[in-house]
């Protein structure tokens, strides 16, 4: 009565086949990541040293370190975050907690989706027109960071809105029925429970911002400057642009130097990402409903 039939066996075989197929696809996915990391470590690992990280390039950028670029990227990311995070979170709170479903919010949502789809080179041109020329910030950290901020705003908005919406509606209902205003509800209940998701979004934005080249190369980042940035109206070097320059624009660069620069850039991004994951796990462990 309960013996396996021919058909059962055949179905089992097919199912195993598909399982292996999907597994292979997944492996294929990890391969590039491993290859990239492996190549960078093998070819660029030898360049990395404390000196490399904390000195300026020398000999027409064919030797020396990357400190101005490293510091420049930190500046660019930090200023971009200072602009986009408050703006993005405020917009997301409005959209998720205050706005109803109407033509206005539909237009805004459409705008966010489209903003996310704009190629970075177009953002760069917009940045030049708006911030460098029109607002007369010149090529500066401020102009570059504003461009980066606008480019990454959709990431912050979408991540924030999703984490706000993940907070159960019953909590809001409980608050409103006790006479809490919308804002009291948001501040005391919704935000504290959405913070882990919001942070994940922000950190994702950091990694994206750190790696971008096009939006900054016309707005604030320069090939080479012997000066470290002192304020938001200075120009600066940046890791991504520096990588582009030493790989393609300067003759006589030793082969392993660009790999070293790329390795540092990737390491920065990976460290941020792992921080975000660790933090999310920590916060998730703390909350419970």
């Amino acid at each position: 009565m309960f013996e396996t039939s021919e058909l059962n066996i055949k179905n089992q075989r097919v199912q195993r086949l598909f399982k292996i197929l999907f597994l292979l696809m997944t492996m294929l996915l990890i391969a590039p990541v491993l290859l990239i990391l492996g190549t960078l470590i093998v070819k660029g690992g030898s360049v990395i040293s404390i000196d490399f990280l904390f000195t300026s390039p020398t000999d027409g950028m064919t030797a020396g370190g990357i400190f101005p670029a490293l510091l420049g990227t930190v500046w660019l990311v930090a200023v971009a975050l200072l602009i986009s995070v408050p703006l993005g979170i405020a917009a997301a709170i409005y959209l998720s907690e205050y706005a109803g479903e109407n033509w206005f919010t539909r237009i805004i949502n459409l705008a966010i989706i489209n903003l996310a789809g704009v190629p970075s080179i177009v953002h760069a041109l917009f940045g030049v027109g708006a911030f460098v020329l029109f607002f007369k910030f010149g090529t500066s950290i401020l102009a570059a960071s504003l461009t980066l901020a606008i480019m990454t705003l959709p990431v912050v908005i979408v991540a924030t809105r999703e984490s706000l919406q993940a907070v159960p509606f019953a909590f809001r209902e409980a608050c409103w029925n006790m006479g809490a205003t919308r804002w009291q509800t948001i501040r005391r209940v919704v935000l504290p429970n959405a913070v882990s998701g919001i942070l994940t979004g922000v950190i994702l934005e950091v990694s994206r911002t750190a790696g971008e080249t096009a939006p900054i190369m016309f707005t604030g980042a320069v090939f080479f400057t012997p000066f470290l940035p002192q304020g938001i109206f200075d120009q600066t070097m940046a890791m991504s642009l520096h990588l582009f320059v030493v790989s393609t624009q300067v003759p006589g660069v030793p082969e392993n130097l660009p790999y070293g620069v790329a390795l540092v850039l990737i390491a920065m991004v990976l460290i941020m990402n792992s921080l975000s994951i660790a933090f999310r796990i920590y916060l998730r462990g703390k909350k419970k409903w």
Binding site: E173, M178, G179, K287, W289
Partner: peptide, 28 residues
């Protein structure tokens, strides 16, 4: 706000806030 203060509502599904027992009682 005064209406909701004067009139308490209890729901079908208990919906305590994800904070401590003490903070829940003192929330309102």
């Amino acid at each position: 706000v005064q209406v909701r203060k004067q009139i308490g509502m209890v729901f079908q599904r208990p919906n305590p806030l994800p904070i401590s027992i003490r903070d829940n009682v003192l929330f309102g």
